[in-house]
Every structure is written in structure tokens, then in C-alpha cells.
């Protein structure tokens, strides 16, 4: 149960706002951290915590791109392909990355390691091509750098096991 496991963080979140409902976004992040994505079970817990209807919580989760409504790979790679990045080679990079990992747009590698999808502008246009990996920015990329990083993440995942 989120309310027990993350009691301190949830309490601290509530202290920032005059009402419980305002905590729905931060609490959704906590739920996603715990479950890896947002299954109905997570939505129901968030609804209880924030005193909301599960349908309202689901509509919030569906409105934003950083809440995941289906399971993702261990490393969720979101490549910016908006115009400024595209003018500096983001489309080619995005295509080569998918080919290298053997996934379609939005797909996850068979080993469950990497999900690749494109996203809208990430405010890093001067450092294109770039992506965010589990919400951390990785910038000034090319496929050589990317391959080295993928190896690094694979090794990191092995150590975690």
C-alpha cells in the first residue's frame, strides 16, 4: 500500500497545498515509481489518498505524457523530434536507435530493457539530438555515444539483479 510505504513523502506533499486534490500529480509520480506504470490498482490507491474519484485520477493520468498507462522497459527512452531537434538530425537518430534496438515506435525490446518513443519539445533544442531516459536528460547524442550508453545501462541492469 502506497499510503503505508510512502507515508512520509505523502504527508510532506500534502503539507505544500491547501487541499488534498492538489497532491494528485505528485502522488501519481509516487505510484508510478512503485508500480513502474499506472495500473488500475495504482489509480484506485491514488484516488483514496487524494480523496478523489478513480475516474478523475485516470483522466489526470491520461492527460500528461509522463504518466505511463502501460508497462514500459526498464529504461524508457523519449527522443525529442520536434522541429528544432529535427533540424539537427533528431529524425535520423530516432530511426537509427529504433533499428539498432529492433523496436517499432513506442515498442519495448524483447528483454524488457528499452522502450523507445518520440516526444514533443523538451527544452534542450541547443543540445540536439537528445532524449530523456527515465526523466533524466541525455544530450548532444549520436549513435556511437548512444551505443556506449546502452551497453552501460545493460551492465547497470545486470548489477541490479
Amino acid at each position: 500500500m502506497l499510503i503505508e510505504k510512502y507515508a512520509d513523502r505523502i504527508e510532506k506533499t500534502f503539507s505544500k497545498y491547501p487541499d488534498k486534490r492538489s497532491a494528485v500529480m505528485p502522488v501519481l509520480y509516487i505510484a508510478q515509481e512503485e508500480y513502474g506504470w499506472l495500473p488500475d490498482e495504482a489509480i484506485n490507491e491514488v484516488a483514496d489518498i487524494c480523496d478523489m474519484d478513480p475516474t478523475q485520477v485516470r483522466s489526470i493520468a491520461g492527460f500528461y505524457t509522463m504518466y505511463s498507462e502501460k508497462p514500459k522497459g526498464k529504461y524508457w527512452l523519449q527522443v525529442c523530434t520536434d522541429l528544432p531537434c529535427a533540424l539537427r538530425g533528431a529524425d535520423k537518430f530516432h530511426k537509427e536507435l529504433k533499428e539498432y534496438l529492433g523496436v517499432e515506435e513506442g515498442g519495448t525490446t524483447d528483454d524488457g530493457m528499452f522502450t523507445v518513443e518520440h516526444v514533443m519539445c523538451l527544452a534542450a533544442c541547443d543540445k540536439a539530438p537528445m532524449l530523456q531516459c527515465n526523466f533524466h536528460y541525455v544530450e548532444n547524442l549520436d549513435m556511437d555515444k548512444m551505443k556506449a550508453l546502452l551497453d552501460e545501462w545493460r551492465a547497470e541492469a545486470k548489477e541490479d539483479k
Binding site: R21, S22, V24, M25, Y29, M52, S59, F63, Y64, V119
Partner: peptide
């Protein structure tokens, strides 16, 4: 002073949508 994190929606840069989003309403 408090920080509130959005979650990926361009429209929340529009001031009234931003306020709604902060209140836990749709942005």
C-alpha cells in the same frame, strides 16, 4: 516557497491552465 512538477503538457504553460493543473484539475 513550493515547487510543483508538471507531467508533460504544453498547454500548462498557459497561465490559467497552469493554475488548474496545480490544483489537481485537468490542465
Amino acid at each position: 516557497i513550493y515547487v510543483h512538477l508538471g507531467a508533460g503538457a504544453y498547454i500548462c504553460g498557459e497561465e490559467s491552465a497552469m493554475l488548474s493543473s496545480l490544483q489537481g484539475l485537468l490542465g
